[in-house]
Design a protein around this nucleic acid. Structure first.
Lengths: 250, 250
DNA sequence: ATTATCTATAGATCTATAGATAATGC
DNA sequence: ATTATCTATAGATCTATAGATAATGC
């Protein structure tokens, strides 16, 4: 009964799905939007649940319930639990690698590129514990090491070596040390340091503080990569380039 | 009907379960031995399965089948899957921490203590991939970080700092870097380097070799702890003290 | 007689599918 | 008419327990 001429007054703008190229003028296939949203809700719920309990520890039923979606709808979007999990792995790491690429795009010093990437990663994990837990869970998988974030890190380190900025006899160890240390810092942060963490005082009673972890991590790793201590700390303390927060979703 | 005077010829001595001190002369409470063996077979099977697929990914049925034990017997030994898993976590890390303590007992240089511990850990993971996978799976848990291996590592690093052997403004970062790097080296070794690993050539085509990883890891980490590069490499190359392999079981 | 094992099974949980319902697009 | 959602359910799988069997110890 309401005004039938007033159908969709204007273009609904960018679909903003994974698709990064929303052809400016045109609107979305109309009803497919609902499908996309349902899918996004499923992915979001799955990330929350699986970051905490692992793929096997979560029932499809739990996911659809958390996403407030009918059970059978799951199979409109994913073939199985493995399928949604592997989609998550791909999306989450790819998205963040893109964020890092964007953040580092204006930087010319390879040491600063690594420093900024490390700091952003640690910061992101603290800001978003679900993301952090997921990163810890998958960070050592062959998939994560060889693609996405791993590949990016390898490239950044190779750049620094080529530019003679990193002085390093063993590039493989540099790569593994940076990757592993970032993960262990995030794990420690989530488990011990962050407010409400289970064992929040084990480390504190040893006089260990969790302040400035992103910068301390960056400084330590730059030193490992062959930069002098004083300079490493200076680089790690530089102001962060402005971030385009656009891509925070799954 | 047999000889009633011969009741328990002597004190039943140590049960010899986890207990490492089997008082030479005396024998075990007799039938309880079977129980202990069944339990050990269950733990062994669970470790193999859960290292690969995680706690949630394994059915109790699979465990008893792999252990060649009747299904119901599981509940004679463990209350639940969580129970056997947490027993595994405790045993595995505690046992290895004890091995490391034994190996390091003759060493006076704190740097060599860390070097030997790191090398043994990486070596053990390669020799026993099941163990390595389990370590990766649990290495970042609050439990592993705060007890067992984590605690040991923390102590070793604190010793080195107290002895002014490690020159290090940020002990927490030293600790996290050593722990995380060891885990990432093991993950890389299992996933890429070890023969038959899935993506065995990703790194090799970059000219990365997996030779001498234990020593390279130790050298890298000693450098991170503030020892000069040349000396770090020398310490990492020292011959390993003889090992008492006695405690290899779960 | 006691103790540890085994087999069998009830009940709960989970996956995958079938078929009904509601909304969209022409 | 088409498409995406929902509800309902069959069949598989899994856990925990009950009760039978076999071995040990007195």
């Amino acid at each position: 009964m309401p005004n039938p001429s007033n159908r969709r007054t204007a273009k609904p703008a960018a679909p903003a799905a994974p698709s990064p190229a929303p052809v400016a003028e045109e609107r979305e296939p109309r009803g497919a939007r609902r499908k996309r949203e349902t899918r996004a809700r499923l992915l979001d719920a799955a990330l929350r649940l699986m970051a905490e309990k692992g793929m096997e520890g979560v029932a499809i039923n739990e996911i659809t319930e958390a996403a407030d979606v009918g059970f059978g709808s799951f199979y409109n979007h994913f073939e199985s639990k493995e399928d949604i999990y592997s989609t998550l792995v791909d999306n989450v790491f790819k998205d963040f690698a893109d964020v890092l690429d964007r953040v580092a795009s204006g930087l010319s010093d390879p040491a600063e590129v690594v420093s900024v990437a490390v700091r952003h990663t640690v910061m992101r994990a603290r800001r978003d514990a679900v993301w952090g837990r997921f990163l810890i869970r998958e960070g050592f998988s062959a998939r994560a090491l060889s693609r996405g974030l791993g590949q990016r890190l390898l490239r950044d380190i190779a750049n620094g070596i080529a530019a003679k900025r990193f002085v390093l006899s063993d590039p493989l160890m540099g790569f593994l040390s940076v990757g592993g240390t970032v993960l262990s810092v995030i794990a420690a942060d989530l488990n011990f340091v962050a407010p409400g963490a289970p064992a929040s005082d084990v480390l504190k009673e040893l006089g260990f503080s969790g302040e400035h972890l992103p910068e301390r991590t960056a400084a330590t790793l730059l030193y490992t990569l062959g930069i002098k201590r004083a300079e490493a700390e200076k680089i790690a303390a530089r102001p962060l380039p402005a971030v385009d927060e656009r891509t925070e979703a799954v």
